[in-house]
Each structure stands twice: as C-alpha cells, then as structure tokens.
Amino acid sequence: MIINKILNVDDYYFDVFMSISEALTGLSANELQSTGLATDYYTYILKSLEGPTFVEFLTISKDILDKATTKNELKNAITSQIIANSGMNDMAGKLMTLWYLGTWEGAYINDRSYKEGLVWNVMHAHPPGAKQPGYKSWNIQPVNSNS
C-alpha cells in the first residue's frame, strides 16, 4: 500500500488525493504540502467538478495505490489505468497543471496559487512580480549555468 496518511483532514479521499498527486507530480507529499494549498486545491476540485467524476478518479487512484507495492508497479498501473483512459488522463493532466501552475482550466485557484506553483521550484526561479529573489541575487550565478 502506497497511500500515505496525510494531515488531519476529515475526508476519506484526501489522503488518496495527496498520494496520487505525489505520484503524478514526482514530488513528495511534504513538498506538496509546503505550498500551503493542499486543502485549498482539494476543496476547489470538489466544488468545481461533478462529484462522480472526481470520486471515480480517486476511487481508481485508491485501487492503484492499494495494490502497488513498488514504485515500478505504481508507475505501470498509473500508465495503464489512468493515462490510457481518456477521461482519467484528462483529470490527471488537470491535477498536474494545478500543482505546477496553480491553475484549473486556465484560471488561478486563489491569490497564492500563482506564487506557490511548483514550476518555480523546478525552474530554480521565482514568480515574477510575486516573490523577489532577494538582495544581491543578481550577483549569484544561476543554477546549471554554463557561463
């Protein structure tokens, strides 16, 4: 079983949401939680979608997470049961976009979702106009710079 007990949110599917988010984004649940938006994202999706669509996605995800005992089994199950299924693939894509860009169907979730998008950490950058890199940051050579 790969489902991690996450936070103390009193909802059956929240742990599944976080565990499948971890598997899809490639980042740990702690990294996802550090955005401070996990419960915001979860409740936003619940309110934005028809319940059965999201519940179906989470039910399939829970089944995958319960049965997978290794990371390789998890990857193969996600590929065959979520990515290969057009409806589930769409949901997975929206979920990854939510975490990385802070948007759901092109709209920001709230005023923090842009600033806390995972894309900024992956790029070793900061969200322009939202978080500044700090005094004298221009004097530090960029990560992976060849110059």
Rank of each mutant, 00 (worst) to 15 (best):
T35G: 01
L37F: 03
A38G: 00
D40S: 12
D40L: 04
D40K: 06
Y41S: 11
Y44L: 09
Y44A: 08
K47S: 11
E50K: 12
G51C: 05
T53F: 06
V55R: 13
F57D: 06
F57M: 06
T59K: 14
I60Q: 02
I60A: 03
K62E: 14
K62R: 13
K62M: 11
K62Q: 14
K67A: 01
A68R: 03
A68Q: 09
A68P: 02
N72Y: 03
E73N: 05
K75G: 00
N76T: 08
N76Y: 05
N76D: 12
I78R: 01
T79G: 01
T79E: 09
T79W: 03
Q81A: 05
I82P: 01
I82D: 03
I83K: 11
I83T: 13
N85G: 04
N85P: 03
G87H: 08
G87N: 15
M88V: 08
N89H: 13
D90P: 01
M91T: 08
M91D: 00
K94F: 06
K94R: 14
L95F: 01
T97Q: 15
T97V: 15
T97L: 15
L98H: 08
L98K: 07
W99Y: 09
W99A: 11
Y100E: 09
L101P: 07
L101V: 12
G102H: 03
T103G: 06
T103K: 15
W104E: 10
E105I: 08
E105S: 11
